[in-house]
């Protein structure tokens, strides 16, 4: 009896974690401007409004562009770093490994208050490049951790075998290590993409009209006048996130 009660409680807790997401999706099919979920009268009205509004569609495309760009930045910086830290001993290695995790530890408001004047002074304010680099910084620890974990689980004698068979260190890396790392790199890229696509903390500090991502458009509406359009944007973001997870599992990467 106690066991069954605990079981039920556990599932209720898990359901509660997904409830806000499910409810937002449900509300997006509302037929009117009130934020009541539809029961019989499901309507695509707000989806049509979303597609018709250039501000939303531009933001969506920009979000995807920034997401892909920052995932690329995160992979190109995180992967070689993970290789250096796991395969070599060098001065400053420990410091570098700790600093890499900092973007995930520093409060977003602190980082944003530093980035704001930097982008402003560097003339990157209102430029998508600044956003791509900032999101790339957030993705760096994610890619680094995933690739590093994979590298540590990989038997190092595979590289030794390749070297023994006459491959140079470079050849061993490119033809043995990197192919073996591919699932980890893909997983890291997808995680960095999802992170950037839904980045909401820096967005409310760094958004300008020319660099508005999807969350940046959602933000004022959510704060001052929530409409079913916010729910639609939510739904789009969830669908894309779920699509990415599905793509990952198709690529043969386990979630955990």
């Amino acid at each position: 009896m106690l066991r069954r009660g605990l079981w039920l409680l556990g599932w209720i807790a898990l359901a509660a974690l997904s409830a806000p997401l499910g409810y937002a999706v449900w509300v997006s099919f509302s037929p009117d401007s009130f934020l009541t979920p539809p029961t019989t009268n499901w309507s695509p009205r707000w989806y049509i409004a979303f597609v018709a509004d250039r501000r939303w569609t531009f933001a969506l495309v920009r979000s995807l562009f920034v997401g892909c760009g920052s995932a690329l930045v995160a992979v190109l910086t995180g992967t070689p770093l993970a290789l250096a830290v796991t395969r070599y001993r060098f001065a400053g290695r420990g410091l570098l490994a700790v600093t890499t995790l900092l973007p995930a530890c520093v409060p977003a408001a602190v980082l944003a208050m530093g980035l704001l004047p930097l982008l402003y002074l560097a003339g990157l304010w209102g430029n998508v490049l600044g956003l791509i680099l900032a999101h790339g910084l957030l993705g760096l620890p994610v890619v680094y951790l995933i690739v590093q974990t994979q590298l540590e689980q990989m038997p190092p004698n595979l590289e030794a075998a390749a070297r023994g068979l006459g491959a140079s260190r470079w050849q061993a890396t490119v033809r043995v290590t990197l192919p073996l790392l591919r699932p980890a790199i893909l997983a890291g890229a997808a995680a960095a993409l999802a992170l950037s696509f839904n980045e909401s903390m820096l967005a409310i500090f760094l958004a300008t009209p020319t660099t508005e991502t999807l969350p940046a458009v959602i933000w004022p509406q959510l704060r001052y006048a929530p409409s079913p359009l916010v729910a639609v944007a939510s739904c789009v973001s969830v669908a894309l996130a779920a699509g990415m997870v599905l793509l990952l599992s198709l690529l043969g990467v386990k979630l955990c």
Binding site: P20, N198, L214, L222, S234, V238, A242, V245
Partner: peptide
């Protein structure tokens, strides 16, 4: 995990 892949705004809106 799925809610973590969605935007924080989605969760807060819901």
């Amino acid at each position: 995990l799925l809610p973590k892949l969605a935007s924080l705004f989605v969760l807060l809106f819901g």
